[in-house]
Amino acid sequence: MSEAVLDVGGVHAHYGQSHILHGVTFRLARGECMSLMGRNGMGKSTTLRAIMGLVKPTLGKVWVLGTDMAHLPTDRIATLGVAYVPENRGIFPNLTVLENLVMAARPPVDGGGAGWTLERVFDLFPRLNARKDSWGNNLSGGEQQMLTIGRALMTNPRILLLDEATEGLAPLVRDEIWRVIGVIKDSGIASIIVDKNVKRLAGIADRHVVLVKGRVVFNGNGEALMGDPEFLNRHLGV
């Protein structure tokens, strides 16, 4: 396996008294697309929030390219090259589409790479270009998801964390988002994708991690995952 861009080692996390993550461990290789699956409430979002430093791990470490981030503030973690698309999308309703995109735009950390620009994001999502002067709160759910992904790309990340990639979206928009996840993967950005659609994830992700009550119960490729119908049924409900 090539060098890990992200290394999550034995992460425990709490919300107040409740112990949510119990030693979550996995690595993400450079350019790898990883799915993070599990039924509702198993700790997928909390895992992503722990990586972003939005929930401080009570135990364990998170490294991005060898930098220990457990004690860094969220903005420093982001500037190391981690972009985050939260479940609720986090669009700024009082900014226009264009402003949402440019407010946090940054060149790539290492200076190299293709470099996402406004132009490229608009090529990827022509819909955003058409609506660039609309306020964030006037967008449909699909447009919001395109915007939040576009905004994440504008920070030129090395790692993209995408929570509930297609939740609540119309079927056509879902297809669009899956296409874009493919484009992002091909561009070399490593990603962690959370979604309910196991089939789609199996088709696109290189590797899958399944959480049950804050513990990793599966970490392997699509064949191993799809080859165990009993496991799929029990932990993912398919």
Binding site: M52, D75, A78, F92, N94, L95, M103, A104
Partner: peptide, 18 residues
């Protein structure tokens, strides 16, 4: 833009590296 965004959701602003 960042000021307006921060007024609405400071956590998201931080998550974007600001």
């Amino acid at each position: 833009m960042r000021m307006r965004a921060g007024a609405y959701n400071a956590e998201m602003v931080r998550s974007l590296g600001i």
